[in-house]
Design a protein around this nucleic acid. Structure first.
Lengths: 114, 114
DNA sequence: AACGGACATCGACGGGCGTCGATGTGTCGA
DNA sequence: TCGACACATCGACGCCCGTCGATGTCCGTT
């Protein structure tokens, strides 16, 4: 053998993302990686008051109320949405810090070097 | 009934993400929403030459070569990685434009209004 | 107290995804 | 030419995820 393990190695400088970091960030991106949840987030963020109640969001999709509720729960559990119950209705609002954290992810040197 | 359909509506201003947009962006985020693929991207981006061959990446994980190859294919198919074969080895390099596009997503007014 | 509406939760179903071992393809060296 | 290596592809398996209908919980109204 010609010991090929030596020839191809460009040693990968040290500032790469750790396994723990990756496993911490992936769920956040997984929560965003769904067209329905993206539109939900967008609808809430683009509302005049910065928040929206479930009944509004429900009408924007051809999906069951149970499904919308599930998606909102995913976004809320991921820390992307705030949830506030007022009377009979429940209002969701985006958490700008969470979105900013995601945006910074792709400008951090480990992922966007130049 | 008190016609509750009228009371809770905060009309959702017009600049929300369309269904087509959401279905176009979701696959990109889905490609990123995996801890292994995040680390792969990070390892490649943080290498001194800006690229890495599969044999290097393979050693960084406790996964089969087939699995790493699969993840690299996903990232490549999503337009996040460039692929170049040189001799026996295959080198992958990040496409900064694709990452920038993702970063801009979360600074666009539809998702990050303030 | 009783009814109805808003939203969450539950259980189930189907499809997609991550992982694997095995095999195929291309390249280099002996 | 033959063998070894780097990497891709191919089924196959198990599991998670999106969706649904049905049901539960809370609140306001009458």
């Amino acid at each position: 053998m010609s010991d090929p393990g030596l020839a191809c190695c460009t040693p990968l400088s040290g500032t790469a993302m750790s396994t723990d970091q990756a496993e911490q960030v992936a769920p956040l991106l997984k929560a965003l990686a769904d067209p329905v949840r993206l539109r939900l987030l967008s609808l809430i963020a683009s509302s005049t008051t910065g928040e929206a109640c479930v009944c509004d969001l429900n009408d924007a999709f051809d999906l069951t109320q149970a499904t919308i509720s599930h998606h909102l729960k995913v976004l809320h559990s991921a820390g992307l949405l705030d949830r506030e119950k007022r009377g009979v209705w429940v209002y969701y609002a985006v958490r700008p810090e969470a979105l900013a954290a995601v945006a910074d992810l792709f400008r951090a040197p480990a992922l966007a070097p130049a």
